[in-house]
Design a binder for these strands. Structure first.
Lengths: 342, 342
DNA sequence: TCTTCTACCGAAACCGCTTTCGAAGTTTCG
DNA sequence: CGAAACTTCGAAAGCGGTTTCGGTAGAAGA
């Protein structure tokens, strides 16, 4: 169909190439794939013919035989979130170079819809599946009886038999605290987001652990409520009231950290001289635009996506994927909110 | 391949169904597709057999014959940008309900890479193509001789023979200015981003037109430099210096507007009482988190994506797509930065 | 010169499905 | 009761490749 556009060139097939090269389709196929016994001269002739016609093999025909499609499904539960984007980029990147293309599906965070999408992807005979969570909390498994390898990213599967790739939030919390300690801070407070999120709890745990290791005590309780600047503003004002001698605040996200910066500024506290501030996620729109620019922990989501793609890739080549939750260390990015720019 | 998971069920084929139903594959095919002459009883028997084996036709085999794949390529030049996401969601949404799946490709803003991806998508025999620009500026056409319908979104094609769907930035500028005028503002300044962007120029034009229509003159020159909060801060400080009696600032983006809010706050000007501020894009992370919350113009990107998908859909059904640039009106979202919350 | 190897090529089967077309079986009608 | 008109089904071709396997021609060996 689709004689949509006038110039629509009928797809050139292998037999066209074979005819032009004066050989059979069988020989043409072997010549192009470097398989079987083909004389060097013939091979060249076929290659040239293919080049001239700009022949591209029909992946459906290939897939039909091979049982492979060269496609991977990317199932996300929430396209809204800004987290899936870098992951998606990383995956697309790792695959894109090769012969694999990515089917994108958004389940809108709805389990029914997810099942539906899953079915659609499987009926398309995708070779693998990447499931991207919208938060770092563990999510239900898709089950073990799928005909293709599955890798869970960002949010792990609850089932330890599945393969999951996540960013290590405990380590992130620890690294944030250690950085502040290494800057000579000792009166450290922690303000974070919704405690219903694993990210909030994990980061808080990391902070506490690092402080305990250093024999330092957290200033006040962990203040946890929601992932917003407004909360960052009000919470840090509480911190300043209760413990005026605070000299650093670990904020559960960059957004909360921005709120903290606002409050500190209004209160006349210099950042980082009087109080250092550090966030999580390293979200450019937040960290680069604030005054001063914000130190943060970068979860390297793109790397996560790339790693997931490579896992699936390996599984396609017959390697067995290693079950369990694999964590990836975040990266500390130091900016003006913890270390005065010279 | 992929005996990855133990339960991996070998894909059930039509002949399995036919055998179970005691008919030939031909009859089975016709029965399931409601084509040809098949006795009602037979049809039921086949349907039941298919159900029982949970048969799903292999789309590659179908595609091989039909020439259709039920897939659409989404070619974006920049996955970084936050603009493509809602568009993508909209498209995925409109398609998702049906039988179409989306191939996602990121060209990284590289023309070579784009050609490569395009080739890959065509070789996959996608039925249609949606091209999403990373900015609103017109982009080179992919050409007229493609075998599938193409719709350009967000950034139009330079070729008027192509079909493009964009958000109307001139109208957006006009609406922003009109809103401020209707709030009784008359000393209106305009600060915007990189004048190399069509978005900056179009919005500025809209603002100027609306003011001219009302017989009001813009306060000072349009200040244009870059899309950042820092620029928003410094530019509005310039505005305050040069024209202290300014009572409203149209900012070329929400980010710039946030910068303006910061400066106004530091300068002790009340928003919106003394100076009203309005931005563009309606980016939640900006508009919802600022003090006060920011009025803005929402380009309705999701709607744009949905519309694009519908165009492609229609084209698949044989309808001819209408060439030219189709614009979509933005939506004014009023918040505390222009109208004091009661 | 005649056999025996090689090296190279092509006919044909096949992947899973759709579609055409002819062969049955059934019914209707003269 | 036989012919015509339906109805229902299946054999087979084909979509565009890959792969097996047998055939042919030229080279090497006897």
């Amino acid at each position: 169909m689709s004689t949509q556009t006038p110039g629509a060139p009928r797809a050139v097939t292998l037999s066209d190439v074979a005819r032009l090269a004066g050989v059979s389709v069988a020989t043409a196929s072997k010549a192009l794939n470097g398989r079987g016994d083909v004389a060097a001269r013939t091979r060249v002739r076929v290659r040239e013919a293919a080049e001239q016609l700009s022949f591209v093999p029909n992946p459906m025909a290939q897939g039909l035989l091979a049982g492979r499609t060269g496609t991977v499904g990317l199932l996300t539960s929430d396209l809204q979130g800004r987290f899936v984007l870098p992951i998606l980029m990383g995956a697309e990147d790792a695959f894109g170079a090769g012969q694999v293309n990515v089917f994108l599906c958004d389940a809108r965070g709805d389990a029914i819809r997810e099942q539906y999408q899953l079915k659609a992807l499987l009926s398309r005979r995708v070779d693998g599946l990447i499931v991207v969570g919208s938060r770092t909390d563990a999510r239900p498994s898709l089950g073990q009886d799928l005909p293709v390898p599955v890798v869970y990213v960002y949010g792990p599967s609850v089932d330890p038999a599945d393969t999951s790739l996540v960013s290590d939030n405990v380590a992130a919390g620890r690294m944030a605290a250690e950085h502040l300690l290494s800057c000579g801070r000792t009166r450290i407070a922690h303000v974070t987001g919704d405690p219903g999120y694993a990210a909030a709890r994990d980061r808080a745990r990391g902070v506490r652990e690092a402080l305990a290791d250093a024999g330092v005590e957290l200033v006040g309780d962990v203040l946890a409520s929601e992932w917003s600047e407004a909360w960052g503003r009000s919470a840090s004002s509480v911190v300043l009231d209760r413990t005026p001698d605070v000299d650093a605040i670990v904020c559960g996200s960059d957004q909360i950290a921005r709120g903290a910066l606002d409050t500190l500024r209004d209160a006349g506290r210099a950042v980082p001289e009087d109080v250092a501030v550090i966030g999580f996620d390293n979200w450019d729109a937040m960290v680069e635009q604030s005054r001063p620019r914000l130190s943060s922990l970068d979860p390297n989501l793109m790397g996560l996506g790339r790693a997931a793609a490579q896992q699936v890739f390996a599984a396609l080549d017959g390697e067995r994927l290693s079950p369990g939750v694999h964590t990836q260390e975040p990266r500390l990015v130091i900016r003006g909110s913890t270390v005065a720019s010279r």
